[in-house]
Every structure is written in C-alpha cells, then in structure tokens.
Simulated assay, not measured.
Amino acid sequence: KLLVLRDDWGYCQPCLSPVWDTGLAAHAMLESGLTNDDPILAKANEWLLGRQIFEVQGDWAANRGHVRPGGWAFQYWNDYYPDVDDTAVVVMALHRADPEKYREAIERGTEWIIGMQSINGGWGAFDADNNHFFLQNLPFADHGALLDPPTADVSARCLGMLAQLGYETDHPVMAKGLAFLRSEQEKEGSWFGRWGNNYVYGTWSVLCAFNAAGENMQARHIRKAVDWLKYVQRPDGGWGEDCSTYWQYRRDEVKTSTPSQTSWALMGLMAAGEVDSNSVARGVEYLLNAERDGGNWHEEYFNAVGFPRIFYLRYHGYSAYFPLWTLSRYRSLKKTNSKFPKYGL
C-alpha cells in the first residue's frame, strides 16, 4: 500500500492516514448537512470507534504513566503511538454526530488529552513535556526534528475540542492552554503550523479554538491575525504558502494559491466573524472557480509536514474535504445569518 506505481511514474508513501482522513472527512460531511443517520457517516463513526486505544500504554506513558489510554492513532493500527491531534479531531466529530451515543468514547478520549497537557499549557502531538531543545544540537540530530514540543496548531485542536464539549475558560486546563496560544503568536499576527503548511494552517487552527472558547474576537491579538490573513491573500482570491516558509528567511514565499490553504484561511476568517467580509467572498469565489473533478479540487503541491525543512507530505484528501467543509460552512453561516461557527474546528 505504501508504494504506488503507475505506467511511467510512481511514489512511496511514508505511511497511511486513515484515522486522520476519516475524522476530517466526517467533519466535512456533517458541515454539509449529513447526520449520523446517514449510512455512510454512521459506518465511518463505527469504524472510528473500533480504532480507539483503551489498553496499550505507549511511549507517551514515560512522561504520563498515571494517565489511562484513550486516544486514536494516525494509521490503521499504531497503538503505541496515538496522538492528541487525531484524538481531538475524532472526538469532535463523534460529539457533533451524536454526543450521547458516543459518550464513552468521547469521555475517554477527553481524559487522555487532558492528561497529555504539558506544563507550559500546550500540547505536543505524541508526548508531553518533550521539549529538551539542547538535544537538537547533537550531531545526529541536525535535521532539527528530534523532539515533539507543544505547538500552536496541536494545542488549538485540543482546546477547540474541550470548548466544544463545554469546558469554560476558567477551567485550569483551558486557562493554561489559551495563555499558551496567546504567547505563541508571531509578531505579524500569525501562528506557526507544525503539521500543515504553515502559518495559514496554524492561524486557522488557533482562530477556531479561540472562537469556540468564547474569546473576544475583536481583541487585539485576534484582529492582528485577521489582518495578517487578509494581507497574505493573493490577487486571485486564494491563499497559498510554500514549504520553504519553514526557513525563517523564506517565510513569505508562495508558488500559487491552493484549495486546501484557501479553505484554512477562509475557515480562520469565518471563525473570527468575517463571513461577510470582502476577503471571504473573494476566497469563496476562488474555490467555486478553481479546477476540479467533481468533488475533488486539483492540488499539485505538498500541503503538510513530516519534519520541517526535511520532508513534506501531500494529503490527497485535503483538496476534497477541506473545500467541501469550507463552502458548507459559508453557506450555513449566510443562510442562518450567523456570524460565528459553533464548533471547535
């Protein structure tokens, strides 16, 4: 399954991403109006339930051995390496579909995510307090990706999940996490994206979390992020960001607008209450006019990260479910005359 060969070309996948793709696709389908009664969505949710890890304490237990398992992994079966990013996405999808039916799975996943919060208030993907940065300077670690420290995009996913489940901002886990996000904002207003390219991805993630948590979306740090997203919008109405932005001196480089990055920017702006703005209208127009085959938009470039500055990933599903999700959210907000989404992602 990892080696894909065609007549005159091919590629090798580092791994498969069925849990991640299924969770995100479920969000897109729910946003489009499907309910858990739909057989496709119901089957997807049942499949996700069967992938939850209840028994195995993986490597994360070295720092959090007192925490019960309850997360999801990225791949089909990888019980020793669940991650909080996948777990938060799945929990939010199950909660949107039917919070009572999936209550046990939601509660166990939430318990695990809360237990994986780092001391500084943020979350890494696979571990807690994995931030011994001196190790990055060892000769065999010169790729700069030896650690799994807390990052804004992953932390935002966890906080968005907790907010969607009803956790208030004065809850200690929420308070520490929101403070971490505020401290991680870049000087121009964006947030770093560890697992997706790059500052557009991080900024979308954080704005969704702040909105779900009830942050004042007119606050200075929010408007600074909105101004940045509007500033980097391209003349064609879309957004794009190059893999080279993981080098600080190349962080403004972009080749072209892409459907997935445009979707992230639009959902970030809509989370900030900008559904009626000209920037959102132009972005929606870009998606409507972009080349696609049925429900799959054309997207050539890499859109995610394995290790920054080392190797990058192209999720083929991103150009299908993110535009669907975005256009569905836009339609819903305009139809109901709402200004803000009501979910954590």
Rank of each mutant, 00 (worst) to 15 (best):
F322W: 15
N303W: 05
A145V: 10
D38L: 03
G294H: 04
S279Q: 11
N296Q: 13
E111D: 12
H27E: 00
D170L: 00
Q218H: 10
V200G: 02
H143Y: 10
E184P: 01
D59T: 02
S244F: 07
N78M: 11
A281P: 00
C158Q: 13
D37H: 14
I119L: 10
G295E: 05
K334L: 10
R331I: 06
Y167S: 07
W9N: 13
M217C: 00
A320M: 14
L147M: 01
D38R: 01
S328R: 01
W264I: 04
A219F: 02
N296K: 09
W123T: 00
Q164I: 02
W297N: 09
H221F: 15
W72M: 09
F134W: 14
G189Q: 12
K101D: 07
N78P: 00
C15W: 14
Q117R: 11
A213L: 02
Y312D: 13
R292T: 02
A88K: 05
D21K: 02
I40E: 09
W77T: 09
H27S: 02
Y246R: 10
Q261A: 10
V226H: 04
L288P: 00
L3N: 14
S257N: 03
P99H: 11
V19Q: 11
G283I: 01
G214Y: 01
R309K: 14
P150G: 00
L327D: 03
T326D: 08
G124F: 09
Q218F: 06
T336Y: 02
W9M: 03
Q164E: 15
V89T: 12
Q185D: 01
A105Q: 13
F340E: 07
S183Q: 14
Q136D: 15
G71F: 00
A271S: 14
M267Y: 04
E241P: 06
Q248S: 11
V206H: 05
W325L: 13
M116Y: 06
D37N: 13
L229F: 10
Q136T: 08
F74D: 01
S118Q: 05
D153H: 11
P149A: 05
A219R: 06
S118F: 01
L138D: 10
T258R: 09
D236I: 04
K1Q: 12
H221V: 09
I113H: 03
N130M: 05
G10C: 04
Y231N: 10
D79L: 13
W77S: 08
G177C: 07
Y318E: 13
E100C: 05
L269F: 07
R51Q: 13
H66R: 12
H132S: 10
L269S: 06
M270V: 06
R292K: 15
D98W: 02
A272I: 00
W77H: 12
N120D: 15
L48H: 09
H95M: 05
P235Q: 09
Q117S: 06
E285A: 15
Y343Q: 14
N198P: 03
V280W: 08
T110L: 04
G189N: 03
V154E: 10
S205H: 01
E253T: 12
A141C: 13
G10I: 06
Y246G: 10
N78H: 14
W60Y: 14
G283L: 06
F307N: 11
E299Q: 15
A213C: 12
H66G: 01
K176M: 13
F140Q: 14
P99Y: 13
C12M: 14
Y318P: 04
F307T: 11
N296W: 15
L16H: 12
M217L: 15
Q248E: 15
